[in-house]
Write a protein that binds this DNA or RNA. Structure first.
Lengths: 229, 229
DNA sequence: CGCGAGCTTGACGTTGTTCAACTAGAGTGG
DNA sequence: CCACTCTAGTTGAACAACGTCAAGCTCGCG
């Protein structure tokens, strides 16, 4: 963590804060006093599971992983620039249920929670949009929890690869911005098995793997592997 | 599903609708036109995974299970009278991500979603409370997903028993209102293993089991089993 | 009395983890 | 430039966890 700075002005937010347009100019100005931009280097912890959630985190630049810590970590999702890292802590219990760490060099706007709550309370349209985001994020977990509890190794790894291709890199060919261990933590399996299955998929010519470079050669088969679990 | 009826009046709601007090009398009256009370018998499906979520479900009487359907079902939580069955679908994607079925004879208020959204949009305090409920329900999943993916059989069954004792029946002795298969579906394991572990816990005098009657004899040990996973 | 659903237990096969050995590449200091 | 080390990745084999199958049991009900 380093380089603490105040935004110049949020009025023409260069980070494309979502739903900022629903606030009045005065309200937007007021955010400046309650917002700090912090830069994180790759690997640094942005927020730590269990600590008090006093700030809303908005990812301005870079990519972070949101994961649950335990004997083995479980990466729930990756977050790209332009998204709130999580809004549930804003209105619910105010401690982080997860940890967040930078996958590369990132910038995070940390905005005082209490301030956002006040803005939301007096601006129904704004609150409405925040609630939508929270709801969708909750809905995502229904799928995740069912995938993790019902699918086998191959299906779970296929899920992770499809997630990376479809949601994160939006391309069938991408540089895996993480270690094999992290890929395993996305799929809830041991690192050795993640490697093994990558090798199998490669041998079956469903994907190609060269170091961190991964290309999905047979998208529909990967999809089928994900479906049958 | 049977016995469709309109509420007499929601003004003195006999079902203790949560947060109804935040609405104006006129708004509460307007709900009547958009609300139907439906009775379900034990085992009946209240709502089906995949269908459109056109209504908010409020559980007036009885108990239901909320579960994800698949080759094997996964029961995510039980809901007691006086709670919304789920609010996420109200503001997020509007299809049910889960199925809900009655555990005993129940009554459900089904309120038109669009109507509630309109009330919420013009009443910030009401929306605020709904958002809190949604957020907390999302936060619950962080724990659930981590438990399911990291704990072993014994830890998961201990979780289920503690959940029933602490959250549902609020007593260390209770009648298990479900089959062994359903207990297994709460803990994400096969029915045979749920039975086996119940037997082990009984042999170790941590619980007593007589048919559906379960008594937690050594609460702290069960807690420890849950902790170590 | 017999039937069926839910429950119980043991034996066995499958899935996934752990351990261990080895390889490849990147950085470091002489 | 080479040896050294460190980390990430890779593969095989042993082992543990868990599910499935099969058989028998119990209890309520027609």
């Amino acid at each position: 963590m380093s380089k603490i700075s105040k935004p110049q002005s949020c009025l023409q937010c260069p980070y494309k804060w979502k739903h900022l347009n629903l606030l009045s100019d005065d309200d937007i100005r007021s955010i400046r006093q309650n917002c700090t931009i912090i830069r994180f280097k790759k690997g640094e912890t942005v927020c730590k599971q269990g600590t008090d959630a006093t700030h809303v985190l908005y990812l301005a630049k870079g990519m972070v992983k949101l994961y649950i810590e335990g004997e083995k970590n479980l990466i729930l999702r990756l977050i790209k620039a332009g998204e709130y890292i999580d809004l549930q802590t804003l209105f619910g219990d105010n401690s982080y249920r997860y940890s967040v760490a930078a996958m590369d060099d990132t910038e995070v706007c940390m905005i005082n929670s209490e301030h956002i709550r006040k803005l939301a309370e007096k601006n129904s349209a704004y609150l409405f949009e925040l609630t939508k985001v929270i709801s969708d994020s909750g809905n995502y977990f229904y799928k995740k929890i069912s995938d993790i509890s019902s699918k086998h190794l191959r299906g779970r790894l296929a899920d992770a690869l499809l997630y990376l291709a479809d949601e994160i890199y939006e391309n069938k060919e991408f540089d895996l911005g993480m270690t094999r261990r992290e890929l395993a933590e996305m799929s809830s399996m041991s690192m050795e098995n993640a490697v093994r299955i990558l090798s199998e998929l490669k041998a079956d010519k469903i994907i190609s793997v060269k170091g961190k470079r991964i290309k999905i050669l047979q998208y529909d088969i990967l999809k089928k592997l994900s479906d049958i679990g």
